[in-house]
Design a protein around this nucleic acid. Structure first.
Lengths: 203, 203
DNA sequence: GTCTATATCCAGATAGAC
DNA sequence: GTCTATCTGGATATAGAC
């Protein structure tokens, strides 16, 4: 499983592309080999099985989806600042990896126990975040709010347009690229307004 | 393809369950046959192929996900009324079919052209909705707002918790059922508050 | 219409030469 | 490490008896 040399790396890159695009069940080892420009047997030489190869790419892919979540939760900033930073960074990451959200959510639905076991140890803890919110409510610097709804609202508003992109492109934007681009470029501001207005006390 | 008799119907019910749970690629004809309590060959007798069977259930499944969207867009009500009704109805439908959103979004990502072709003719038109919003802004009954962001915000806030349910259950709620239930029972109010506060002029 | 048996194909995985 | 050739299992699909 030596991923140091270039062959191992090129396999991982190819595998990631194919798995993310087609999902575990839809991906073919042959297609991954082709994409990597190598023989199918080499896949099994480097990674024992399809399962194994998948796990190697999934953990890394997932960590990208939640990369700066940890930062959001633990950094020493005011809540409103944190949230604005998070929305900016998160949408940048998703824009660079538009298929990741659909991939991750599908694979987790396909096999929750197994996939969630892979995620162990990423160590997301929400205690600090909840405490901060309680404190800022106490302070009077934000309106009372439920932390769980808040974080899910933010994730939903950021990630859903990517998860449902093909559907929205067609149904909402009629496949007009100019409308899609306009929506995308306004999205950060839209989400921030919606979330912040609900928290901020004085405008 | 006579879906009138009970065998055809029981196949469709079984197929729907398996396809929704596992996706097209993950579903097995044998499993569908077992679920329906019939022989595998009968599947091919009633529906020529797996592809065909899938299409038969997908269109109906999708129409459920967007069922009352049409009502939202075309009914003769004030916008705020419409939106509240939509959120209520939509969350009820999704609660009754919690796996549908993940299923639909995955299949559309897997094969956008083909799947979106199946959806033709559902005839969702947003013209009326956009016109109404423009009018109500003109009236002064709501704040200025972008209709596309609005509708996507509503869909995101409603559907995302279902799409990402296994992930949220574990990461946000620590698999504590009581917390999950509490979140679910508060969700309608949370979404309405967030959306309506942003539109309503006087509280 | 419903079953058993079988054809056909294709995917993941292994053996072994180089 | 990388390839060719091959095994094996499993999946869709069909043929044909009842």
């Amino acid at each position: 499983m030596s991923t140091e040399n270039s062959t191992g790396k090129s396999i991982l890159i190819a595998a990631r592309k194919i798995f993310v695009l087609k999902g575990f069940d839809g991906a073919r080892m042959q297609e991954i080999a082709d994409e990597a420009g190598i023989n199918k047997s080499l896949l099994h030489y480097y990674f024992r099985s399809k399962e194994n190869l998948f796990e190697s790419i999934f953990v890394e892919a997932f960590s990208q989806v939640q990369s700066n979540m940890l930062e959001l939760l633990t950094s020493e900033r005011f809540l409103l600042e944190k949230i604005e930073m998070f929305i900016d960074q998160y949408l940048d990451i998703l824009s660079a990896n538009p298929y990741l959200p659909a991939f991750v959510t599908h694979e987790i639905n396909r096999n929750p126990e197994k996939i969630l076991a892979l995620i162990r140890g990423t160590g997301l803890r929400f205690d600090l975040f909840n405490t901060q919110i309680d404190q800022e409510i106490e302070n009077g610097s934000i309106w009372p709010v439920n932390p769980q709804h808040l974080i899910i609202n933010i994730m939903a508003l950021c990630a859903f347009p990517f998860v449902a992109k093909p559907l929205l492109d067609k149904l909402i934007f009629g496949n007009v690229q100019q409308q899609i681009d306009e929506f995308t470029s306004n999205r950060k501001v839209e989400i921030k307004n919606l979330i912040i207005r609900n928290l901020k006390k004085q405008l």
